[in-house]
Design a protein around this nucleic acid. Structure first.
Lengths: 315, 315
DNA sequence: CTTAGTAATGCTCTATATGAGCACAATCTG
DNA sequence: CAGATTGTGCTCATATAGAGCATTACTAAG
């Protein structure tokens, strides 16, 4: 407890979860790791010639993707021991960020591409109802893992965590628990990444990523799913003009859940989040829809405005 | 955008916001910086012999305060350019954590002591109604700062931010905006810390801290004030057995606001957060109160349980 | 032209949550 | 005993959330 402790100099990198929604799929920017044949999140250097980390990240991403980043938020700083550069040895600190943008063809080294995030987390997409993957594969395997301990207390605790995270035993599905779900699967040895920790692995479907990048992505998804409920960040993912249904589909893509259409619209206009452009979209396949635009002023009017969306609430 | 960027090795430290509530005051553990005569948050080394940062921080705090840390959560990683060790030069990364405990005599170098956090943020305590400091000093000075720009858009934007952050022009006070308030004061040159950024300073009351520690503390306060509304973390600050009023006073101390007693109790028992011990406290000064204890089981029952408290909601 | 199909949009109904207050009970202090 | 202080039960108005019905305005197929 000193004012000026000795500082260990440690390698620091920035890792970005860059999200866009296209064709009703939430997508994340990934690169291909040449050596390991794993997909990875784009990782940038910690440059000290920027005033803040955020500015540095923004300029770096924009340089690489040639597209402005609408919104940036720090996610988490990872520095666990197993997070070393090559197996063991030096410790690596990784400061992760969440960024929102609109999809664009990305260029750069490492073969950047936009991937649906459900490629990495197929169990997170409940838009067409409960995925069979959960009921048929994940639930039984997790149950088996829980039953496999001798200690009764641990067993009960595991069962509880599983039920809560995956909405079993009559509990509701909570789309915000993405990280908890991934961590459970990791602990239970059901994702390939766990092998590096020496666990026995018999993986469930879902593409793995390099290092702990899938955990970082899970953190980003969880954060974004939570955020859209009380901050108007969805609009960063929308084009200038859009229909209310398009907005709803975007939210649904992120949340992995369907929403009640009328209630969704009620919320949006109760809060005055959008305004008419006067134009209509005729190619909707049904009655023409008004084209609206985001009222940027709301960002000023109520700094902490809520975009309360009809999704499961923390209770 | 490479898989294996070059890593700049950077000094990394851990900074802790350790909170306890005693005698209806929220307190934070500080140390005295010998050189600069400023109070500071305890800062620890980044030790690589712990499996996770959290474990490292926990053991370090417990070693120093001789008291268990009930709850730890990562706050934010600061690495702005002005955050260098001595004025200019080397960049410093500081990973900050929020920890909850019960007050104890702390020992260690640096003269550790528990300080009411309202010592550093006197405008944050609204338990006895709106502080005169806000109306008489802060509001007029901020207004003057806003008026002092030529650009009309910037002026309006500043006025808006001020109104929202400090609950002016008929807006409600929102206790969660602690960080925004501090940052406004910083920008306006109303805190001593701003001098280091070369701003002209005419400070309002409130003790400054070393480096950007007051900003880190503001981050911790804001986070905790938000958290108590949907997670049962208050109990980490309570003794084993307590009365409902004591619990309410603790929440009020943190939130800096009074709560409606009956509604508070309604929430607590609707959610089954506590259970009777069978004992009563006779020294209440009034009718004897039941002594209750936290039902630890709720942490299992609903991992993300809400302790919805009757405080201002984001909308 | 008619019939489906698909969306947009307006409205209602119910359950629940929240904010505020009244009334009264049980204790202590002076 | 009066007055202060706290605990505790209860009510009431309002806001919000979840669910569904009905109607309107288009396109495409027959």
């Amino acid at each position: 407890m000193r004012g000026n402790p000795d500082h260990n100099a440690v390698p620091v990198e920035l890792t970005a979860v860059i999200v866009a929604v296209t064709a009703e799929e939430p997508r994340v920017l990934t690169i291909q790791d040449a050596d390991q044949n794993f997909e990875a999140l784009p990782t940038g250097p910690f440059e000290s010639d920027h005033r803040t980390l955020q500015i540095g990240l923004r300029s770096w991403v924009e340089r690489q993707t040639h597209h402005p980043l609408g919104y940036i938020e720090q996610l988490y700083t990872f520095a666990d021991r197993d997070r070393t550069r090559d197996g063991a040895g030096e410790r690596l600190v990784s400061i992760s960020y969440l960024g929102l943008t609109r999809e664009r063809h990305a260029t750069g080294s490492g073969d950047p591409r936009w991937r649906s995030w459900y490629r990495f987390f197929p169990w997170e997409d409940w838009r067409s109802g409960p995925p069979v993957l959960v009921g048929r594969t994940i639930a039984p395997r997790l149950r088996a893992w829980a039953k496999g301990v001798d200690d009764g207390a641990t067993r009960r605790e595991r069962k509880n965590r599983i039920d809560i995270a995956f909405g079993l035993s009559g509990r509701p599905w909570n789309e915000e628990l993405t990280l908890q779900r991934y961590e459970l699967l990791y602990e239970a040895g059901l994702v390939p990444e766990a092998k590096r920790r020496g666990l026995v692995v018999d993986p469930v479907p879902g593409a793995p990523m390099m290092h702990d990048h899938r955990r970082i992505l899970a953190t980003g998804i969880a954060r974004l799913r939570a955020k859209i409920k009380y901050r108007p960040v969805v609009f960063e993912l929308m084009p200038e003009r859009f229909t209310l249904l398009a907005l709803q589909r975007t939210v649904e893509a992120l949340a992995g859940q369907r929403l009640h259409k009328q209630n969704f619209r009620r919320l949006i206009d109760q809060q005055g989040l959008v305004e008419d452009t006067g134009e209509v979209a005729m190619q909707t396949g049904g009655r023409p829809a008004k084209l609206v635009r985001f009222r940027r002023e709301v960002l000023l009017e109520r700094a902490v405005a809520g975009t309360k969306l009809p999704l499961s609430r923390p209770a």
